[in-house]
Amino acid sequence: MHCVDLNCDMGEGFGVYRTSLDSELMKYITSANIACGFHAGDAATIRHTVKLALAHGVAIGAHPGLPDLAGFGRRAMDITPEEAYELTVYQLGAVYAFAKSEGGAVAHVKPHGALYNMAAKSRPLADAIAEAVYKVEPSLLLFGLAGSELIRAGDAIGLQTISEVFADRSYESDGSLTPRGTEGAIIADPARAAEQAIKMIRDGEVRTRQQSSFILKADSVCVHGDTPGALAHAIRLRAELEAEGIAVKKAGR
């Protein structure tokens, strides 16, 4: 029987700007990746989102990003592995403390945006992030793009890694995500997104933008909270997975 985790990036507001869909999306997912304050989020938002996750029985994850509020962490920055290590530890610490203070615990770490994509291709950055997670708590799960350097780095240091796939994004022939801004990068149709996710889970492959097939492992499926129609995506995906007999449950041991 196939099973999969369903995750979503959350808590990506700050100050008076709230991500209003979080409370609804929580009903359909099993893991929440909570922004840690660098690309989005702040103390109040982290705490609020942690409490939402606990109320819905959803796994809490830290979602560290590059220090770029204006660019939402989606613009690449020239950082060193040491800087990647430090910003990961710093941001993980914020969510870790709020989870503990509310009677919960952090289950996983998933880098955000440009940091995620940079670590997918750069082994030095991937090693630094994996080391940061391992040194804070070696039992934490490390989420990374399926087939990426981040997954290999996590495996090498002894972390349990979770190979992540995307329902609402198209893929390139090398297994990377199509860059945002490229035509077809975002899959807006919930039915098509669900179809792609099910194929990745059941068949272990995805059809790329170049019309080739890329073999991958699918432990967790991401639906972006800021994708147009995100709630419709989550509802359709959860229903389609269950209709196909694919169990939806939290990632990990």
Results as ranks from 00 to 15, higher is better:
H2W: 14
H2L: 09
V4G: 07
L6G: 10
M10D: 03
E12Y: 05
V16A: 15
Y17M: 12
T19G: 07
T19H: 15
M26A: 09
K27T: 06
Y28Q: 02
D42L: 14
T45Q: 09
I46F: 01
R47W: 10
V50H: 03
A53I: 12
A53P: 08
A55L: 14
A59I: 05
H63V: 13
P64G: 04
G65F: 01
Y85N: 15
E86S: 10
L87R: 04
L87C: 08
Y90K: 11
E102H: 09
A119S: 14
A119L: 04
P124A: 06
P124L: 07
A126H: 04
D127V: 13
A128Q: 09
I129S: 04
V136S: 08
E137W: 11
S139F: 00
L142E: 00
L150K: 04
I151D: 01
G175D: 10
G175R: 07
S176Q: 14
P179S: 10
G181R: 13
A185H: 05
I187W: 01
I187L: 07
A191F: 00
A193N: 08
A194W: 05
A218I: 12
V221D: 04
G225Q: 03
G225Y: 02
T227L: 08
L231A: 11
H233D: 09
L237T: 08
R238N: 06
A239H: 13
A239I: 04
L241R: 04
